[in-house]
Design a binder for these strands. Structure first.
Length: 771
DNA sequence: CAGCTATGCGCC
DNA sequence: AAAGGGCGCATAGCTG
């Protein structure tokens, strides 16, 4: 896709931004108001291109005859490799149109092939463009001849070409994915920016003048101006590939030197094969039951009004106090009515008007759920009730209607397969990974196609199992091998109880689980689980204690026992931190890296440039001067910082140093953050690898394909799919089986999945025996 | 008006 | 003294 973005061009064309820059809001208007007429803006574009890119006119070509395209494709086939990039009218591969595409292969000029440009004056289609049929025929030859296709954010272009041209391509290289594997912390996301940084080494780019461009969709840009830009994109995509590939080619010495062999394995065997699977999922989409959605909407909107009314009734009750505040604070931020949705105004109400005291360990003027629950105040419940309903309506109910594709009544969300730095997926438009599960009503709006059933399969205890593998502990491994519950096993050890006494349910005489809850056992299990997950998330012991409603000492005691009984857990934690400290990164089971450079920061950094005893003369260029370091002061303040506990105390030390002209930078917080991340990143990242391997195995399975089975959504440790009702039984077996064996190459812990077959997501289970 | 941060909250 | 990993997205409210 077109990763190079013309800043003036609206977000609707900046497909890269959609995926790569989460802060960008999509503009609904195709042409924004900038106070100029369309023709003026286009005249501007023409002039800018003439002025800035005149010399590049001959560097790129525009293909407007079939013969020329055939010849270019001939050469791509001959070379066996080419870069490809599409231009579209917007971000939606199904609803927006392709405007043209560009190609580049070694030894040739990059070319642009216009398909759908429109004359901005007459609104008529511009002459001498190639038809979709011709393009399809030629692009198909790339696929038929296995030409290696170089792309950037390939999934988008692949989907555009599927829907708008009817050709099914597979990327050989995706520069976006490659960049994520090479440095998931890279601040630049766009093709153009990455190219400038790594290929041009930050030298000036002739094409960077594009600030001058006005907001306009690409189909309105005159071909004679636009082709230079579009063609350039393909060339830039290729050049970035040339730079990146040396690090991800296992036969290249740079790949070995930089310790990227395992990373390249993740690239070639996990991430790249996943792209088409993800494109398939986005294309499949998931059906929304509109009638049901309308019922939900009505129900919750009514509820919202009720909750709102309750809040304002309380405002009336306290109107004296509120009015009193308004009088004393004429410049207050309260509107004529207190806005229940404004955290600022709620804070004024609670802390200034009602005189509530800050809740311990919470922001001083916080109005979050924890704070509100801790206050004994009748407003709080009303606010929480309102928020709960408002969240459901705005984020999940009303939002959904705007996203449904009118052509098929489905939502086709965008999955970012490297959305999280750990390697996890993210999802947007809508985010299918945070649909409420507690409130089953919302999930039920998602249904299978007619004649189909939904099938959701989730790994049971995926993260603890990954942790077990990484600990390499026989005791833990055996618990799983013997079909025992790890949390109960750990609890048994920590609380000196038998394993059976730490189970959530009583067993019958045959040792089978009954549905009778063992209240005490459940409690032991929960405590052990919380501690273990606390370790896994790098959570502090005080915070774990709080969650368990117990004292810090008690929680520490339990943790000590767990560490003593399962020393591998503690060792894993230490090994992970040591790995990060030595190398600056941690790795997953499959070798994906999570770089944590902050862990290598010095605890304190000193700046003596303004120190009183610094004799450095910045204007003295004659004599070589060494940077001034006052080792004595450094020592003194390091000790003082280490001795002072708490933010306030540390600030005092810093202030004291500042009085001597010494600036101290305290990196303690960053280091602690990184230490927490390094344990979690290994577990979360390995689990992500595992789910991705399963997606590839399941998504490419011939039998499942023949049975009409389709993957729909990944939710971290869970895959949602659908299949025809009559094939559900077989699909269920195969689905679960493939998922459970997908990670066998590096995961010896027995893996099992819970599969549910329903009409609606989270709906009633369909008994397959009855079919 | 667009773009940004802060705050809050849904999920795994 | 305090200590929760990873996301997307809503509204409020500020800024240029």
């Amino acid at each position: 896709m077109d990763l190079f973005t013309i800043p003036g061009i609206p977000a609707t064309r900046q497909d890269d931004k959609n995926i790569l820059n989460k802060t960008v809001k999509k503009t609904k208007k195709v042409v924004a108001k900038v106070g100029k007429s369309l023709s003026e803006r286009i005249a501007n574009i023409k002039r800018s291109v003439e002025e800035n890119l005149g010399e590049y006119k001959d560097k790129y070509d525009c293909i407007r005859e079939e013969n020329d395209l055939v010849k270019y494709i001939d050469l791509c086939v001959e070379k066996g490799i080419c870069a490809i990039d599409t231009e579209t009218t917007g971000l939606n591969p199904m609803l927006d149109d392709i405007v043209g595409f560009s190609l580049y292969t070694l030894g040739l000029k990059a070319v642009y092939i216009p398909i759908n440009h429109i004359d901005y004056i007459t609104n008529a289609k511009v002459n001498n463009q190639l038809s979709k049929e011709i393009c399809k025929k030629q692009l198909q030859r790339l696929a038929n001849n296995n030409v290696k296709l170089i792309m950037f954010n390939a999934k988008f272009d692949i989907r555009v070409l599927r829907h708008q041209i009817g050709v099914y391509l597979t990327a050989y290289w995706d520069g976006y994915i490659a960049q994520k594997l090479l440095n998931e912390n890279e601040p630049e996301n766009g093709l153009k920016a990455l190219h400038k940084k790594y290929v041009l080494k930050n030298e000036k780019d002739a094409f960077a003048f594009s600030d001058l461009f006005e907001k306009i969709t690409f189909n309105l840009v005159p071909i004679n101006s636009g082709y230079i830009y579009a063609a350039r994109d393909a060339e830039v995509t290729y050049e970035l590939y040339t730079y990146q590939k040396q690090f991800l080619d296992p036969s290249n010495s740079k790949c070995i030197e930089k310790d990227l062999l395992e990373v390249s394995n993740v690239f070639w065997n996990i991430e790249m094969p996943l792209i088409n699977i993800v494109a398939d999922m986005e294309d499949s989409g998931i059906k929304v039951d509109l009638d049901y959605l309308n019922i939900l909407s009505e129900k919750y909107n009514k509820l919202l009004l009720e909750k709102e009314a309750e809040f304002y009734k309380l405002c009336d009750k306290y109107s004296n106090k509120i009015e009193d505040y308004r009088r004393k604070n004429p410049n207050n931020k309260l509107g004529s009515m207190i806005n229940i949705a404004s955290s600022t105004q709620i804070a004024i109400l609670l802390y200034d008007i009602l005189g509530e005291k800050p809740v311990p360990r919470q922001p001083s003027r916080g109005t979050g759920e924890e704070v509100l629950k801790a206050m004994n105040n009748e407003f709080c419940q009303a606010i929480l009730d309102y928020r709960e309903v408002a969240k459901l309506i705005t984020t999940y109910i009303d939002k959904m209607r705007n996203i449904i594709n009118p052509e098929d009544g489905k939502v086709h969300c965008v999955f970012n397969q490297y959305g999280a730095a750990t390697g996890r997926f993210s999802s947007q438009d809508p985010n299918m990974q945070n649909i409420p599960s507690h409130n089953k009503e919302i999930r039920k709006m998602f249904v299978a196609d007619d004649g189909y059933v939904l099938m959701s399969s989730d790994y049971s205890q995926q993260e603890p199992k990954v942790m077990t593998q990484m600990c390499g502990d026989e005791k833990m491994l055996n618990a799983y091998r013997n079909g025992r519950d790890l949390y109960s096993e750990i609890a048994s050890l920590a609380f000196n109880r038998t394993y059976e006494d730490c189970l959530e349910f009583y067993l019958d005489e045959n040792g089978n689980k009954t549905d009778k809850t063992n209240k005490e056992g459940k409690e032991y299990r929960t405590q052990a689980k919380s501690i273990l997950l606390g370790i896994l998330y790098g959570r502090g012991i005080a915070s774990v204690a709080e969650q368990l409603h117990t004292t810090k000492e008690k929680a520490q005691q339990i943790q000590d026992k767990i560490f003593k009984g399962f020393p591998a857990i503690q060792k894993f934690e230490e090994d992970s931190k040591n790995m990060a400290k030595e190398k600056g990164f941690v790795t997953t089971l499959w070798g994906r890296k999570r770089r944590l450079p902050n862990i290598q920061l010095p605890l304190y950094e000193f700046d003596f440039s303004n120190a009183k005893n610094n004799n450095f003369n910045p204007l003295d260029f004659e004599n070589e001067q060494e940077e001034f370091i006052d080792y004595e002061a450094m020592d003194k303040y390091t000790r003082m910082m280490n001795r002072s506990y708490g933010r306030v105390a540390k600030e005092q030390v810093k202030a004291k140093a500042r009085a001597e002209g010494i600036e101290i930078k305290d990196n303690g917080g960053y280091i602690a953050d990184a230490e927490r991340q390094c344990v979690n990143a290994r577990i979360q990242g390995s689990a992500a690898d595992m789910t991705k391997k399963a997606m590839i195995l399941v998504g490419n399975d011939k039998e499942l394909k023949e049975l009409g089975f389709k993957l729909l959504i990944p939710v971290h440790d869970e895959l949602i799919a659908q299949c025809p009702l009559e094939n559900a039984k077989r699909c269920k077996e195969r689905f679960a089986n493939l998922m459970s064996i997908a990670a066998k190459d590096r995961l010896q812990v027995p893996i099992s999945c819970d599969v549910e077959v329903t009409r609606a997501w989270y709906g009633d289970e369909i008994e397959l025996e009855e079919i």
